[in-house]
Amino acid sequence: MLHCENVTLRYGRQAALEAVSFRVAENAICGLLGRNGAGKTSLLALLAAYRRPTSGAVRVLGADPYENARVMPQVALIYDKNESTSSLTVKNILALAAAFRPNWDADYAATLVKRFEVPVKKSLSVLSHGQRAAVHAVVGLAGRTPVTLYDEAYLGMDAAYRKLFIGEILADYMRYPRTILFSTHYIGEMEGLFSEAIVLDGGRVLLHEDCDTLRQRGVTVTGPGAAVDAFAAGRRVLSARALGGQKEAVLYGALTEAERATARRDGLALSAAPLQDLFIHMTEKGGTEDEA
């Protein structure tokens, strides 16, 4: 469905993506995680055929998407465009989307516009950042493209809008499954949306796996400070905080059953590591060693 084989993209001498290979199956909802400059936007631009790779092969729906009249209408890239000076109205934008999207659902678009409380007759220039983001979300949702790419598409939305947006992505996905790649660094709030995630770092794929496996790469240990310190000794500590005599530490690396039993016997509580902590750790420059 989405497939990159040894893809490199250079802007002049600067490499934005370096030897990127991955495959996302049909109808997966995949998170694209990475810090600023990791290459998320470049990768999405390649998949949406906004650019061509310097080398390597990009395949979308089984073909090279670049200037491909069959593939391009099936792919939408939704991103945070700067439209603060645009004189187009919301109505204009929706009409344009309807003209280019074979699966466009005008009724659904109208429902969404109401739900997001977007004033249709106003021009984009007078909308708030959050309302413009909502217009983009409507275009992405109602377009029902088999491949929908969201690049930080929630920027500007408040928490209520983001929740509505994620809810609509899932609800419409249940009715019309499609392949979604969604870049974000709001990991905590979005992680339930994804079945799998690709983590980019410095233009390379750091890992690509399902979110539950990813979360099991770390563990949160809570208990008396001394017991937590003893248990954490020799392990990599991603983050730690203390309150009175109690301590909570996020450790990297999966635990064996025996280690879990030991921890419980010592009065320690175990839970999964927050994806956000794991992500920060994995993409940290030069990573810090154990300092519990």
Binding site: I29, L170, S195, D212
Partner: peptide, 11 residues
Amino acid sequence: LVSFYNINPVT
């Protein structure tokens, strides 16, 4: 369950 908890159907 998907719409109540806002989570991925695979999950």
